[in-house]
Deep mutational scan, measured.
Amino acid sequence: MQRVNMIMAESPGLITICLLGYLLSAECTVFLDHENANKILNRPKRYNSGKLEEFVQGNLERECMEEKCSFEEAREVFENTERTTEFWKQYVDGDQCESNPCLNGGSCKDDINSYECWCPFGFEGKNCELDVTCNIKNGRCEQFCKNSADNKVVCSCTEGYRLAENQKSCEPAVPFPCGRVSVSQTSKLTRAETVFPDVDYVNSTEAETILDNITQSTQSFNDFTRVVGGEDAKPGQFPWQVVLNGKVDAFCGGSIVNEKWIVTAAHCVETGVKITVVAGEHNIEETEHTEQKRNVIRIIPHHNYNAAINKYNHDIALLELDEPLVLNSYVTPICIADKEYTNIFLKFGSGYVSGWGRVFHKGRSALVLQYLRVPLVDRATCLRSTKFTIYNNMFCAGFHEGGRDSCQGDSGGPHVTEVEGTSFLTGIISWGEECAMKGKYGIYTKVSRYVNWIKEKTKLT
Rank of each mutant, 00 (worst) to 15 (best):
T194G: 12
F55N: 15
K455P: 00
R140W: 12
A164Y: 03
K438P: 13
F176N: 08
L383K: 11
F224C: 06
V269H: 03
K168S: 04
E10V: 14
K146Y: 13
C108P: 02
S204L: 12
F424N: 01
F388A: 04
F144L: 05
Q90W: 06
P177V: 04
T426M: 00
N343F: 03
D110F: 10
V248Y: 09
Y391N: 08
G94K: 09
I15F: 05
H314I: 02
G413V: 08
F121E: 14
K339T: 10
G105C: 03
I262R: 01
C407V: 06
I390G: 07
S169H: 06
E72L: 14
N393K: 03
R449A: 14
C128F: 01
V278F: 04
V228S: 10
R373A: 12
E434I: 10
A266F: 02
Y450K: 02
K89I: 06
P120D: 08
T218G: 08
V353T: 11
S406F: 11
S25T: 15
D338Q: 05
V154L: 12
V278Q: 04
L319I: 08
K89Y: 05
Q90D: 15
T264C: 06
Y352H: 12
I112P: 09
E10N: 15
V278M: 07
V199W: 11
E27G: 10
F238H: 03
V174N: 05
K293C: 05
V257Y: 02
A308Y: 12
F345H: 02
N113F: 04
T332P: 01
G351S: 06
S184H: 11
F348A: 11
Y47R: 05
Y312M: 08
F360E: 13
D322G: 06
K247Q: 06
E35P: 12
F395V: 02
V416N: 03
M6F: 14
R83W: 05
K311T: 06
C28T: 08
S187A: 10
R3K: 08
N59G: 06
I428G: 01
E124K: 04
T426P: 01
V199T: 12
S385V: 13
G442I: 10
I262Y: 00
F196S: 12
D198F: 07
T186M: 11
K234M: 07
W240M: 00
C396M: 02
E291D: 04
C108H: 00
T332F: 04
D93F: 06
D338R: 05
P197S: 12
Q90P: 09
N104C: 01
C18T: 06
G403F: 10
E340D: 11
G229L: 13
S114Y: 09
V248W: 08
N100Y: 09
I443D: 01
R162P: 00
F360I: 12
K168C: 06
K457A: 11
L425Y: 02
V447I: 12
R46Q: 14
V416T: 09
G432E: 10
F78L: 14
G280E: 00
R384A: 15
E320R: 01
P239L: 01
L367A: 14
C145G: 02
L319T: 01
R75Q: 06
I428F: 06
V257A: 03
S329V: 06
T422P: 01
F388H: 14
G253Y: 05
K446F: 01
T386H: 11
H314Q: 03
P324H: 04
T264V: 04
K438N: 05
P175G: 07
K293F: 14
V331M: 00
R373N: 12
K51E: 11
H361M: 14
G122F: 03
D131P: 11
H303F: 10
N304K: 08
Y391I: 04
N135E: 07
E320L: 04
V273M: 03
Q370F: 02
K188S: 13
G21I: 14
G160T: 10
G402Y: 15
E61A: 09
R226C: 05
T225A: 09
V263K: 00
G13I: 12
V195E: 13
T81Q: 10
W261E: 01
T389Y: 08
V202H: 07
I428T: 03
F388I: 14
D200Q: 07
H361T: 10
N258H: 03
Y312R: 10
C407Q: 04
L346F: 06
S365N: 10
A250F: 08
S406L: 14
D33F: 04
L41E: 08
W88L: 15
Y22G: 04
S187Y: 09
L327Q: 03
N304R: 14
G13N: 11
Q408M: 11
A164F: 03
Y330I: 03
V263L: 11
P235A: 10
I262H: 00
G439R: 10
P120Q: 11
A279I: 01
K152H: 10
A250L: 07
T85Q: 09
Q241C: 05
K247S: 02
K311H: 05
A307W: 06
G355M: 04
P175A: 14
E208M: 09
L211V: 13
C119M: 01
S11M: 15
D111H: 10
N166I: 01
K234P: 05
N127S: 11
I344P: 02
G179C: 01
G413N: 07
W118M: 11
G432F: 04
R140N: 13
Y312C: 04
E401R: 14
E10S: 15
S385G: 09
T461Q: 08
I40T: 05
P235Y: 07
T225W: 12
L460E: 09
N151A: 07
V277S: 01
L376T: 10
C18A: 11
N166W: 00
E54I: 08
A250K: 08
C170W: 01
N283I: 08
S156K: 09
E418N: 14
A436L: 12
Y444M: 05
K274V: 04
R379P: 13
A307D: 06
N59T: 14
K68H: 10
C108Q: 01
T84D: 05
A149S: 11
L211E: 07
K126T: 09
Q2E: 08
L425D: 00
K446E: 06
D315V: 00
G125P: 02
E193A: 13
C141A: 00
L163R: 04
C141Q: 00
Q237F: 08
G442V: 14
R140E: 15
N36E: 11
R62W: 06
K311P: 10
I334G: 00
A207Q: 11
P175V: 07
W356E: 02
V92G: 15
M6D: 07
E285P: 08
G179S: 01
M65A: 12
C382A: 02
Q90G: 14
T190R: 06
Y391R: 14
K311F: 05
D200G: 12
Q408S: 15
K51T: 13
G229M: 13
K68E: 08
Q185Y: 12
V199A: 06
F123R: 10
K137A: 06
G412Q: 06
V154F: 12
I284C: 04
L376D: 01
A308M: 09
R3V: 12
I256Q: 01
Q2V: 14
G246V: 03
E66R: 05
T332C: 05
R294I: 02
E434L: 14
S385L: 07
P333A: 06
N135C: 04
H302L: 01
N42H: 13
Y312G: 04
R43K: 14
W431D: 09
V419I: 15
Y444E: 01
Q57W: 05
K339I: 07
Y22V: 08
W431N: 08
Y47G: 15
L460H: 09
V273D: 02
L425V: 01
A397D: 01
C335G: 02
I300R: 03
P197M: 11
V273Q: 03
E193V: 14
E98P: 04
I210W: 13
E66N: 07
P333N: 04
